[in-house]
């Protein structure tokens, strides 16, 4: 099956920051999480995909066609949401929808009506009067109404309470299963991804350091802890991002480097992996 998005050698140089040779693909019908700490290059990567930020080099293809030269066709089939829906905070949803509808050749009013009912969106209200979670849902309603096959969301869960985040993750899963959409979303809230992501893209200091399946990524690492303030010397070079813990010290380790004498081994969560890798 054709890849939904292919990115090859994406580079962008800023003063004090550079996006270096970012390459990845998105499988159709998969939820891919783009993780990385603040300032790692998540938003720059996502913005570069749609030429909102102009990359210095790199090739981007949506649905098998290069984005440059087919920009409008690609945008008909995807939706990009930054944060929640932060546009036109004082306009009623029905006004925003009325202004947005004519741009999409595949706009489906029945789908829009169903989304409005399903997400319980009050069309007479303005984005400002909606909760952060409802704003994301409105953005999804607009995306689904023009049958977007790819949803790109930049930090959609940022600022949401745990219940709303959980609801949204459930919704993402439902959209993939029911509508067959592909989702790429950036976040630094790793627990969200553990609930729903199939694949992981991990970006660090502008470089993609991991592109793999979620389960595989989690299986690649383990957490090890030692009862002493410092790890044994023979283990030190196998450890990633060793740090003091309440009972001694702990670190991340590649599964291939196990076993380690004197270490208590536990499964690593996405947060563990990210926190320890960022210490290197």
């Amino acid at each position: 099956m054709q890849d939904v998005l292919t990115v090859q050698g994406l580079c962008k140089q800023y003063e004090g920051f550079a996006l270096r040779d970012v390459s990845f693909t998105l499988r159709p019908g998969a939820i891919t999480g783009l993780i990385g700490r603040n300032g790692a290059g998540k938003s720059t990567t996502l913005k570069s995909l749609l030429n909102l930020v102009h990359p210095d080099s790199g090739d981007i293809s949506f649905f098998g066609q290069p984005f440059l030269g087919h920009e409008q066709q690609a945008k008909q089939q995807l939706s990009f949401v930054m944060g929640g829906f932060s546009y036109y905070p004082m306009k009623k949803l029905k006004t925003i929808t009325a202004a947005t509808r004519p741009f999409y050749t595949g706009w489906d009013e029945d789908v829009y009506r169903r989304c409005i009912q399903r997400f319980k969106l009050p069309e007479q209200k303005t984005p400002r009067q909606l909760s952060d979670g409802m704003r994301v849902k409105y953005a999804l309603a607009l995306a689904l109404s023009h049958h977007a096959k790819l949803l790109i969301l930049d930090e959609p869960t940022s600022g949401l309470d745990p219940v709303s985040r959980d609801e949204l993750m459930e919704l993402f899963l439902a959209l993939v299963q029911e509508e067959g959409v592909t989702i790429l979303f950036s976040t630094h809230i790793t627990t969200d991804l553990e609930k729903c992501a199939d694949d992981i893209l991990y970006i660090k200091n502008g470089e993609l350091v991991a592109q793999t399946g979620m389960r595989q990524f989690l299986e690649e690492y383990r957490m090890v802890s030692f009862p002493t303030p410092q790890p044994p010397k023979q283990a030190a070079e196998k450890l990633i991002g060793c740090r003091p813990s309440r009972t001694g010290c702990e670190a991340l380790v590649h599964t291939a480097n196990l076993p380690i004498d004197g270490a208590e081994v536990q499964k690593a969560g996405l947060e563990d992996i990210m926190v320890h890798m960022e210490r290197v």
Binding site: E71, Q72, Q73, M82, S86, P89, F103, Y104
Partner: peptide, 14 residues
């Protein structure tokens, strides 16, 4: 303030 330019840039238009 309303991010009108960004919203427009995301629409399928040149």
């Amino acid at each position: 303030e309303t991010q009108d330019v960004l919203y427009s840039a995301l629409l399928p238009v040149a």
